[in-house]
Amino acid sequence: MSDTSPLPPVRLASEPELARDALAAPLLSRAARLARWASPATRVDAGGALLPEQLPAAAGELGLSGDDAAASASEAWRMAVDTGLVEITDEEEGTVAAGAELRRLTGGSPHDVLTLWLTALDAVLADASVPDLDGLIDAMDEGGAVDLSALDWDPQAEAEFLDGVLANLYLLTVGESGPGAGPVPLPALAASMIVPSDMGEPTDDILEQVSDAMMRLDDQFRLLEPIGLVVHRPVDEALLEDAESGTDGGGPAASAPGSDDDVDVARYGMVRLTPLGLYGIRARLLEAGHDAPAVGDLADKGADALLDGTAVFPPPAAHAETEQWLA
């Protein structure tokens, strides 16, 4: 995506509405609860993680149970540390206290809440670009160091790929030809990053790459949903079982959407940006130097700026911008 071509304007929810969505995001909400729960008796290890013996109490505070309770509590605690909701007061003793960001989150302005949510989003996106735990363990040498070459993993390329996918999802959401607020099939998102625009019929190799990327995105969107960025329908587990058993006739690529008109595309995973997600991706696009206007940006500008700015807007967006300018 060129950083010089303006993107279609987006209609954002108000800051108070977005702040309420941010506070309701499961991961940030849990992180805040654990920050309030932390006491002088709470202990963390050298990396800031809760000690294993304290995870059951943390999970109980969050009302979590089952096999994944400890892992979910650990994830929420890590978010509390990453966002400054919790501060480590003594690294040697492993003691903690509520951080200054907790006061901003609970008593600050909507803008304060959204600023902290963007920090949380950055942390989750960084996690989503890391290989799965099994891959990390396989690539670990005897000394405990991870051999990145064994993973076939380029951190920068992986982060750029995910950023590109989210930018394309944003464009599909705000563009006139996209589905709007409707969900986008994961194969379509994967293909938007892999299939050359001038390619006619995709080759088997390209289809295999799309299938692999689709599965990677499925895992990543599972991580991004709890922060409130997206609403995600995962890939149907039955498809994975068919691919592993070979009953699909040749793996994921052979059964890719489009090869059978009767295939339910939703089984291959769907995703859409939430209103909070639109806000977050636009903020990241602006930070990266893209021209990503929002309806209302010209409300306090002069008439010349309004005419110039809306000249490239789609008619509905131009009408909405003019209404706000006249209000």
Results as ranks from 00 to 15, higher is better:
Arg233Lys: 08
Leu223Arg: 10
Ile227Met: 13
Ser211Thr: 13
Leu239Cys: 15
Asp205Arg: 10
Gln220Met: 01
Asp219Cys: 03
Asp219Leu: 02
Ala190Phe: 10
Arg222Pro: 00
Asp205Cys: 04
Ile227Asp: 05
Thr203Glu: 03
Glu208Trp: 07
Glu225Thr: 12
Leu223Ser: 02
Ile227Lys: 04
Phe221Lys: 01
Arg216Met: 02
Ser211Arg: 11
Leu207Met: 12
Leu239Tyr: 15
Phe221His: 00
Ala188Tyr: 05
Arg216Cys: 01
Ala191Gly: 06
Val235Asp: 06
His232Ala: 00
Ala190Tyr: 02
Glu237Met: 15
Pro183Gln: 05
Gly228Met: 07
Pro234Leu: 09
Met193Gln: 10
Glu208Ile: 13
Arg233Val: 09
His232Asp: 00
Ala190Trp: 03
Leu239Met: 13
Ala238Tyr: 09
Asp204Ala: 13
Leu223Pro: 00
Gly200Tyr: 14
Leu223Phe: 03
Pro226Ile: 04
Ile227Val: 12
Val184Ile: 14
Val230Arg: 01
His232Asn: 00
Met215Asn: 10
Val210Ile: 04
Asp204Lys: 07
Ala191Val: 08
Glu244Leu: 15
Glu225Tyr: 06
Asp219Arg: 12
Gln209Ile: 15
Leu240Gly: 10
Ser245Pro: 02
Ile194Ser: 11
Met214Arg: 09
Glu244Trp: 06
Asp198Trp: 09
Arg233Gln: 15
Ala238Gly: 12
Glu244His: 02
Glu241His: 06
Phe221Pro: 00
Gly200Trp: 10
Val184Phe: 11
Gly228His: 06
Glu237Val: 15
Asp212Ser: 10
Met214Trp: 01
Arg222Asn: 00
Met199Pro: 13
Asp218Val: 03
Pro234Phe: 07
Pro196Arg: 06
Arg222Thr: 02
Leu217Val: 08
Met199Asp: 08
Val210Asn: 01
Ala181Glu: 07
Gln220Ala: 03
Pro226Trp: 05
Leu239Asp: 14
Asp236His: 14
Asp242Cys: 07
Ile227Ser: 02
Pro187Cys: 05
Gln220Glu: 01
Leu189Thr: 05
Leu224Gln: 10
Leu186Phe: 11
